[in-house]
Design a protein around this nucleic acid. Structure first.
Lengths: 160, 160
DNA sequence: TCCAATTCCGACCATTTTCCTCGGATTTCA
DNA sequence: TGAAATCCGAGGAAAATGGTCGGAATTGGA
């Protein structure tokens, strides 16, 4: 029940891009040093964000990354779903089998173990937890984080 | 960002206790078979719940477990905090160091890496996620799960 | 008094996931 | 052409996960 550092780094990188890549592309190098993240590791994270369309890249000298679309069209949920995978803390709503259930009215059709009274009770719990996480991350936009960032910490700007 | 099976099993065991241990104690054996959980593994989970006071036990023949206090005084959060540890998905609110921050106004006093503008922005995200999880699990009581369980699935009662 | 049922305890272990590192290939601008 | 970048895949150490196992301690009942 812990967020992976991959997600943490990824979101920080995206915030970094939003703050620094308005006019020109930003290199992995500079993100990594500003954010104090291993370049090698970040090099592994960025392609995921790219494949999801959250960032774009240009190769070669003077290359780097930029946001793939406006910051107010990127939710924290978008980012975390790419890096963290499925955001549901408990995958199967019935809490017993590993299959991906829709949480609808049917009770696990393939696993006999899904039929116990106690197990179908637990579903309500997992659904509430999943829903609360989802709504939290989906309503929070990158743009509002950037705004907060500029307001709160505008004083200290290391490099350009 | 996944709930461990330990937590899932533990909550199911507690629900089982609530439903079946009203008059007498319930053995590990019977919980495990009803819930379709490995006895050996459950044997490792129950002591944690006991140490936290959520259940009581009696050893020897005819021994077993019961709830440690009324079901309406046990929240899902109580259970998960015992089995899952700290429920905050991201431990340090500044998202960069591993120390346990309070999320207050001070910025990581020991780690220089906590001072970057971008990092203090990310704190808002983690706090929102953490808070939404916390409020979800802390307002949900075991008693209401039991009530739902008896209403929804009252028809199928395997053994006494 | 002894047996069976039960919790308690600690050691062990296989698999998976996490968090990286490394070397090189490829692209591009100056 | 060469330096600065991204891209790509392999590998690997450490931790977490999800168990198993054997036996000790306790207790009620025959």
């Amino acid at each position: 029940m812990k967020m992976s550092t991959r997600s943490i780094y990824g979101l920080r990188a995206l915030i970094d891009l939003g703050l620094h890549a308005e006019t020109e592309t930003v290199s992995l190098q500079s993100i990594a040093s500003r954010q104090n993240i291993s370049i090698n590791y970040l090099e592994q994270i960025m392609p995921l964000l790219k494949k999801a369309g959250l960032i774009t890249s240009s190769r070669g000298a003077q290359g780097g990354y930029r946001l793939g679309r406006p910051a107010d069209e990127i939710s924290v949920g978008d980012v975390l779903r790419v890096l963290e995978g499925d955001l549901r803390a408990v995958r199967c709503q019935c809490g017993s089998c590993d299959s991906i259930c829709t949480g609808g009215s049917e009770q696990g059709s393939e696993q006999g173990s899904c039929f116990s009274a106690d197990q179908c009770v637990a579903r309500h719990v997992w659904k509430q937890i999943n829903d609360s996480i989802t709504s939290a991350v989906d309503t929070l936009m990158l743009s509002s984080l950037l705004k907060e960032g500029r307001a709160d910490c505008g004083t200290e700007q290391n490099d350009h």
